[in-house]
């Protein structure tokens, strides 16, 4: 069993036109930068992308949108991307907007082997249109299905050669959920160590969920909203 790949371009082998892929991250935080770059270089197209956001114009999934590689986006919030808006209004891009907790829990359901979940999010709104509603304890819930994705592409902080993963801070977000949910899961990590070096108590994603792992390079980690306090406040 060898899960370790040399780099992003070898790790994304087999992702063909029309694939359904999950991409971890929240905004630009914890996104699989290396794999996105490799997908852009590969020219693969007609992709359905499940990701909380769609990147910005010149980074993240925005790079794939610019190359018109994405047929459909399934996201909760896509507000930072002018090219996205243009493709949406011109009809080039199909978009399904779903509540963020529903998105996360549909990933979780897939990873837990459950076909569906019930959630109150979206009851009484256009999100509920055409969906089955069940009442539990007097409250309405929508039936939402587990995602069915060909590939999940995630970014972790540390990983080992068995595919065990540890995430850092809020870069965790959707990554462990998507890691569980892909038929094939590809993880890129900042630090790749031999199996046995990570503390088993600290593992967020057990290696059983991870099929391919590689050490990513040149992480840019762009910040969308740089908000700071001045070191010396001028009173």
């Amino acid at each position: 069993m060898n899960k370790v790949y040399k780099n992003a371009s070898t790790a994304i082998t087999g992702i063909n036109d029309g694939a359904v892929i999950m991409l971890g991250g929240f905004g630009l935080c914890g996104i699989p930068e290396n794999c996105i770059a490799a997908l852009v270089s590969s020219g693969v197209k007609e992709l359905t992308c499940i990701s909380n956001n769609a990147g910005v114009d010149n980074f993240g999934i925005g790079l794939m949108l610019k190359q018109k590689q994405v047929k459909k986006m399934i996201s909760s919030y896509v507000g930072e991307n002018a090219e996205f808006e243009r493709q949406l209004l011109s009809g080039e891009l199909e978009v399904e907007l779903i509540p963020q907790g529903t998105l996360a829990t549909r990933c979780m359901a897939a990873g837990y082997g459950m076909p569906a979940i019930f959630t109150p999010a979206g009851v009484g709104t256009e999100v509920a249109e055409g969906k089955e509603i069940r009442v539990f304890n007097g409250k309405e819930y929508l039936l939402e299905y587990a995602f069915d994705a060909d590939y999940a592409i995630v970014k972790a902080w540390k990983g080992d050669t068995d595919g065990n993963l540890i995430y850092k801070d809020t870069a965790r977000n959707f990554n462990p959920l998507m890691a569980m949910a892909g038929k094939v899961t590809i993880a890129e990590v900042e630090e790749l160590v031999p199996a046995g070096e990570l503390d088993p108590n600290q593992i967020h994603t057990p290696g059983i969920y991870v099929h391919r792992i590689f050490k990513g390079e040149h992480y840019e980690k762009r910040i969308e909203q740089r908000t700071v306090k001045k070191v010396l406040s001028t009173l």
């Binding site: 929240f26 630009l28 935080c29 809020t170 870069a171 762009r222 909203q225 740089r226 908000t227 306090k229």
Partner: peptide, 20 residues
């Protein structure tokens, strides 16, 4: 609160994507 200038960590943001 927001970090002091120079202490921003791209892995640590809030739901508004602000460094915190």
């Amino acid at each position: 609160p927001f970090p002091f200038e120079g202490k921003e960590d791209p892995d640590l943001i809030n739901a508004g994507k602000q460094t915190i």
